[in-house]
Structures are given as C-alpha cells and as structure tokens.
C-alpha cells in the first residue's frame, strides 16, 4: 500500500500509529541512527516490521566511534519501550524532486567514497571532524543527523567557513510544536554546531549491502 496522504506513519511523541503495510521511501529514526527502507508493516499485534532496511549511524569499536551502514531486518513488538522515535513516508512529489537532483551533470567532479565513513561527529570525547580536510570538495551521498531532525542529500560541499552545504536534500524534522515535517531543499546551509553527525555513504557499501 502506498498512501501519500498519511506521511507520518509512526510518531512516539505525538502518539501517531497508522496500521497498514506501506511501500515507497521511508525514513525512521531509531536511537541516534537513521533507517532507510522501501517498506514498513505496522500492525496492532506485531508492532512495526521493516524488511531489508539500511541502518546508518555510529558504533563504538575499541573506544573509537566508527560510522557504519548496515542492511538488516528490524522488528519492534513493544513500541512503548522501544527507542524507535518516528517513521515517515516521503511523499512521491518530494521524491520526484529529490530524484531530479541525482546524476546532475553540473557536478561531474564529485567525490564518491567506496565505503561508508564518518565526516563529522559532535561528541565531547570521541568527536570526528574532517570538514576542514574536505573544504571545497563535493562529496556524494551524505546523511546527517541534526538537532530536531535528519537530512539526506545528493551531495555536500564544505564551504570556506567549514560548514557543510547540502544540495538536493530531504529534511525530516520537528517544528516548535514537536510536529514532524518533511521538506525538499535544493540547497541547505547548516551550521556545524547544530549537526550531530554527517556520514558519507559508500557506493560499494550501498551496492553490496
């Protein structure tokens, strides 16, 4: 089922839960990670199930924070105790705009990483900041968790102030009333102080996972 009117499929804060099976482009926020998937099943008895989604985030390995993107099935039976915050289905018209930005010939010299890597992590102890290193470069497939929301873009450029500028991006976030909103922005200039993390998805990781 693909219902574009009901874009907020689950919201733990506003107590929204729409029962049904949905396909399309779905973003879910789970703990400090983001799940991208093309399907989701929400039932009263079995909770929420996502088949073959892509989980993107940071994990601790030997006291280091390492970015990862991993394909997996997800299931939350008891939603009240789970760390799943929300699931949103991106409307088709917004996805069409997002798709138009792909394969743009205006940026032929884009750096595409083969494997998923962390570009920036706002962490007091184990923070990562490669923004200066990539200053002036165009990086493909960035995913960012920002204060009150998340962002997935076609490409990111680090400007001369060292702030990431995202191009052709989808933004999912909460407004002042804590309601979830989805928007498409051709260009989003984000101050690195509000960024929790920026991960560059590796093309090989996407192909092989």
């Amino acid at each position: 089922m693909n219902n574009t009117d009901k874009i907020i499929l689950y919201d733990s804060i506003n107590k929204i839960k729409i029962i049904g099976e949905f396909t399309g482009s779905i973003i879910s926020k789970y703990k400090d990670s983001i799940i991208f998937s093309d399907n989701i099943k929400i039932t009263e008895s079995e909770g929420i199930n996502i088949s073959q989604g892509l989980l993107v985030g940071f994990e601790d390995i030997s006291e280091n924070k390492i970015a990862y993107s991993r394909k997996s099935d997800f299931s939350w039976e008891n939603l009240e105790d789970s760390a799943l915050e929300y699931c949103v289905l991106i409307p088709n018209d917004i996805m069409e705009l997002y798709s138009e930005g792909q394969f743009s010939d205006a940026f032929p010299f884009t750096i595409t990483l083969l494997h998923t890597a962390g570009l920036y992590l706002n962490d007091f102890k184990q923070g990562i900041n490669h923004l200066d290193f990539f200053k002036g470069e165009i990086l493909k497939n960035p995913v960012a968790l920002i204060r009150n929301g998340m962002l997935v873009a076609d490409r990111v450029v680090i400007n001369d102030k060292g702030d990431p500028v995202f191009y052709d991006c989808l933004i999912v976030g909460r407004d002042q009333k804590e309601d979830l909103n989805i928007s498409f922005e051709p260009l989003a200039n984000v101050d690195d102080r509000v960024v929790e993390f920026v991960i560059i998805l590796g093309i090989e990781s996407l192909k092989t996972t």
Binding site: G24, S25, I26, I27, F36, S37, D38, N39, Q52, G53, L54, K71, I90, M95, Y98, S99, Q102, F103, N141, V152, L170, L201, I203, L206, K207
Partner: peptide
Amino acid sequence: ALERKFGFFHVAD
C-alpha cells in the same frame, strides 16, 4: 537505472 535502493539511493550499475 533509476531504481532506488532502500527507497532512496540511486545506485547505478
């Protein structure tokens, strides 16, 4: 070619 992997990513092979 424009199939979206995980609902979002165009991975053109």
